[in-house]
Design a protein around this nucleic acid. Structure first.
Lengths: 203, 203, 203, 203
DNA sequence: CATGAATGAGGTTTCATTCAT
DNA sequence: AATGAATGAAACCTCATTCAT
C-alpha cells in the first residue's frame, strides 16, 4: 500500500507539473494559441504524456479552471464560514479574493479572459465549481441584505456579479500598474469594500 | 470626382457589409471559431473579397472593434459634451452606454469576450479608440471629482474602469435574463448610477 | 453557361485526378498505410485540395469504391441486359468481369483487400452499389436456375458469392503470375465458366 | 532441468494467453484498430509484457497466423494422411477445413481480412506455413488429377486456390447467416464438395 | 521478469492567405 | 475588382515501442 500511495503521489505530481505549465502557458498565450506541445515542453514532458493525464486540450483547460476555482472556493468558505457579521464577511471575501489573485496571477489572467473561448460552444456554461462560487457569493449578498448591510431592493444575483466584477477590475488595474508601483494587491481591500458598499461618491 | 466618390462610396458599402457580417459571426462563434469564409458567405461575397478590404483576420477584427468603439465614443462625446453638471454627465454616460449596448448586442458580445483573443500577443493592448474612450471616461471622473461628485481620494483611472466594468456586468446579466423578463436595458440606468455612486449599501 | 460547364468540368477533372492517384496509392499501400499526403502528392496537388473534394479519408475511399463498382455494374448490366439465355448471360458476366479486372488492376487490388478495413466498424457493410451488384448477380443465378442452367437446390445467394469468389481467385492468381506468362486474363473466361458450372471434375 | 522446463512451460502459457487475446482483438477490430494495449489488457498482462514475447505488432500478428495455420495444417495432414482415395481425401479436406473454421471463428475473421494489411508491404507474401498448406492443397489436387478425380487440364495451383476460396466463401456466408439459421457449418461439407467437383450446374 | 508511464513520430484535418482567372 | 480553388503550415491526438523501476 505504501507502493500504491507512492504511485498515486507520483501521478499527482505529474498532474500538478502539467497544471503548473498549462497555467503558465494558457495565461501567456490564451487558450487557442497555447499548444499542447508548448505545455508539454514547459512541463518538460513529451507531448503524449499530457494525454495520459487529460483526455484533450479542453479537458485540461476545464480541469485547470475547476482546480483553481475550487481552491478559491474552499479558501473563501473557510475564511468566511464561521463569521456571523455580514459586513465582516464581505470584508473577508474581498480580502481573500485579492490575496488569492495576487498569489495566482497566471490563473487570474486565464480567469479574466474567460467568457471567451472553450465555453463559446456551450454558451455561457460556467464550470460547476464556478457556479457554486457564484451561488455562494449570491448567498453572501442575501445574508448581507438580511442583516441590512446591503440594500434589499437590489437583485442579489446582479449585485454579487457586480462585486465580482469590481474585484476583477481592481486586480486587473493592479496587474497593469504592478511594474510601476510596488504596492500589494491586498492593500486595496478597504478601498474595494468601501467602493462596493458606499460607491464612488462616498466622502 | 463624382466617379471617384461613387467608387469610394461603393467601397465603403462593401466594407460596411463585411463589418456587419463579421460582427454577427464573431459574436456568434468567437474570434477563433469564426472563419473568414463564414464571414464572406454571410456578407454574400467571395472569400478573397474580404482581403481586398482588410489585410487579414486580425485587422478585420481590430477594425471592427475600432469602428464600433468609435461610434460609441462619438455618441458619448455628443451627448455629454455640452453638459456642465458632472453628475448629469455620469447619468448620461451610463444611459447612453446602455442604450448603445442594447442596440449593438452582437458587438457587446465581442466586446465582452475581449481581453481574450487576438490581443493575447500584444499583452493588453487596447485599440486606440478604446484608449481614447478610456481616457475620456477618466476625465469624466476627474471632472466629477473636481465638482465634488466623486470622492477625490479614489484613483480616477481605477474608478473609471470600475464604472465601465459595472456597465458591462449589468448588460451581461440583462442579456442572460432577457428571455425571461421583457425589460429594456436602458431601464437599468438609474440602478446603475445609484450603484456606482452610492454603492450597494445605499438605503 | 459555357463558363459554368467548364468550371464543372474542371471540378470533375480534379476529382478524377485525385481518384486516379487514390486508386494507385490505396492499391499500393492499402487503406491504412496510404496517407492523404501520399495521394495528394501523387495527384500533384496540395494536401488540403483533397479535402476540397472529399470530406475525409473514409469518404474518399468509399467514393472510389462506389465509382469503380458503379462502372463495373453498369458494364455488366449493359452487356448482359439484352441477353435472354442464362448460360450466355453467365458467360458474358464472367468475361466482362475479367475484362474489367484486367483493365483496372489497381482497383482490383483494393477490391480484394476489402472486407478489410474501413468497413470493420460498420460490420460487413458493403457499399450501396456493391449491394446492387451482389443482388444483380444473385438474380442472374436465379434466372439460370429458372432456365435449368444452375441446379435449383443451391442457395442462389451462396452460389452467386461463390461465383464472385472464383472470379476473384482466378484474377488474383493471374496477377501473381502475370510476369511469367504473357497471357491475357480474359482468356481464362472459358475455364472459369466451365469450372463454375461443371466443377473441377468435369472431364 | 525440471525448473527449466517449468519455466519454459510458463513461457508458453504466457504466449498462449497473449495469442488468445490477440486472436480475439484482431478479429474484433482488425489489424490496425487493434492496439497492443487492447491485447495486453484482454490477456490481463502489462503492455510491455507482450514485447517480451513478440518483437512487435507485426510479429505477433504473423506468429498468430502461423500458429493457427499450423494447427489447421497439422489437422489436415493427420486426417488426410493415411487416406489413399483422392476423392475421399478431398471430402475430408473440406470437412476438416469447415470444422476448423467453425471452431476458430475469430481466427477465420482474421484469415479472411487477410490480403489486407500487414502484408501490404511485402506484396502477397504468405506466411511460410500458409505456403506449405497451399502446397499441400496443390498436391491433393495433383493426386486427384492423377486418380482421374479432377480434370487434368486444369492448373492444379489455380484449382487448389479456387477450392480454398470456395471454402472461405461458404464459411463467410454461414457466419453472416448464423444468427438466423441454427445450422452447423460442417453440415455444408457435401454441398461444398459437390459444388467444387461437379459445379453449380450439376443436376 | 513484468510493468505501464513516457515518448514522439506521424497521421488527419482545418483554415488563413494567395493568385490565376 | 471579385472570386474561390489551391495551398501547406501547424494543431490535435494516437499508439507502437522503450525502459526505469
Amino acid at each position: 500500500m505504501a507502493m500504491l500511495s507512492r504511485k498515486e503521489r507520483d501521478r499527482q505530481l505529474r498532474r500538478s507539473d502539467i497544471f503548473k505549465a498549462a497555467e503558465h502557458i494558457f495565461a501567456l498565450k490564451g487558450y487557442y494559441k497555447a499548444t499542447i506541445r508548448d505545455i508539454a515542453k514547459e512541463a518538460q514532458y513529451g507531448t503524449g504524456t499530457v494525454y495520459l493525464h487529460f483526455k484533450n486540450k479542453d479537458t485540461l483547460y476545464l480541469a485547470l479552471l475547476e482546480e483553481k476555482l475550487k481552491c478559491l472556493f474552499i479558501l473563501i468558505k473557510e475564511k468566511t464560514g464561521q463569521v456571523k457579521d455580514a459586513k465582516k464577511k464581505l470584508e473577508i471575501f474581498i480580502r481573500e479574493g485579492l490575496v488569492f489573485f495576487e498569489k495566482n496571477q497566471d490563473f487570474f489572467q486565464i480567469f479574466v479572459s474567460e467568457g471567451g473561448e472553450p465555453y463559446a460552444e456551450t454558451g455561457f456554461l460556467k464550470s460547476s465549481v464556478g457556479l457554486q462560487l457564484q451561488e455562494y457569493t449570491e448567498n453572501l449578498i442575501k445574508e448581507a441584505q438580511g442583516q441590512g448591510v446591503v440594500n434589499r431592493s437590489f437583485d442579489p444575483e446582479q449585485i454579487s456579479d457586480v462585486l465580482t466584477s469590481i474585484l476583477k477590475t481592481i486586480t486587473l488595474k493592479w496587474l497593469q500598474k504592478k511594474k510601476k508601483k510596488e504596492e500589494s494587491l491586498v492593500g486595496l481591500s478597504d478601498t474595494t469594500l468601501s467602493l462596493f458598499l458606499y460607491g464612488a461618491a462616498h466622502k
